[in-house]
Simulated assay, not measured.
Amino acid sequence: MELLLLSNSRSPGQPMLAHAAEALVKFVAGRRVTFLPYALADHSEYAEAVAGALGRYEIEMTGLHTSTDPIADVRSAEVLFLGGGNTFRLLRALQSLRLVEPIRDAALAGAGYLGASAGTNMACPTLRTTNDMPIVEPGSFQTLDLIPFQINPHYLDPDPASTHMGETREERLLQFLEENDVPVLGLREGSWLLVTGDGKASLGGPHSARLFERGREPLELPAGAELSSLLASEPRFDTPSH
């Protein structure tokens, strides 16, 4: 299984995906990309922007929103790219189109999985560590479960000078751990997680990441850190009683 999970698709002062261009080109390796634009409302506009961004690196792309048989096209895809936007909207669209299992099966069978922000959230077991407002209601919070731990994209460190009275990102993730015994990797802007076919995982990009685990102080992980041990996690989620 090959995964490239970006915290963000845009970095300040750079074109879309430029901050991760080297990793992206190496990951795609000449394969054709199938892009799923469902995290934003205007699928055509989003797909056009991503096609332009990938085109700078001579990467060919097809938008799944134009397909007459999206399930078949997912199953035959070489690289699946799930873009950023609203995670709740993306998950509801995948559920409505009956794409959750086909995407998971394709990734497990060897198709590359590329995610950015909301698309990175989709690779986790659930969307419970997204930053997004629930603008729509999906049928469940269960996502693709390609990795056994959670990611928090766009991770922000607490600002000691801030006068904002709401919870910091760290406080919210610690609240998540009060209810769920699952590691959470806080990916800062400009960073990504790479999972290679030999079962290894590493932190990419110029920044460190922050790892949250129940009963432990948050751990700072340096850029380039080896994270393969997280792939052996055994998460325990809170399950609602009925």
Rank of each mutant, 00 (worst) to 15 (best):
A18F: 02
H19S: 09
H19R: 05
A20R: 01
A21V: 00
A21E: 11
A21P: 01
A21C: 04
E22R: 12
A23S: 12
A23M: 04
V25I: 07
V28Q: 01
V28D: 00
V28K: 00
A29Q: 12
G30C: 01
R32G: 04
R32F: 00
V33S: 06
T34P: 02
L36V: 12
L36P: 07
L36T: 04
P37W: 08
Y38E: 05
A39M: 08
A41H: 11
H43M: 03
H43E: 11
S44E: 15
E45T: 13
E45Y: 09
Y46K: 10
A47H: 09
E48R: 15
A49Q: 14
V50N: 06
A51N: 11
G52D: 08
L54W: 03
L54D: 09
R56Q: 15
Y57V: 07
Y57F: 10
Y57W: 13
E58P: 04
E60Y: 00
M61T: 15
M61L: 15
M61K: 00
T62L: 13
G63H: 04
H65Q: 11
T66H: 13
T66D: 14
T66Q: 13
T66V: 09
D69T: 06
D69R: 04
I71L: 07
I71W: 02
I71M: 09
A72K: 13
A72H: 11
A72V: 11
D73E: 14
D73M: 05
D73A: 08
D73R: 10
D73C: 01
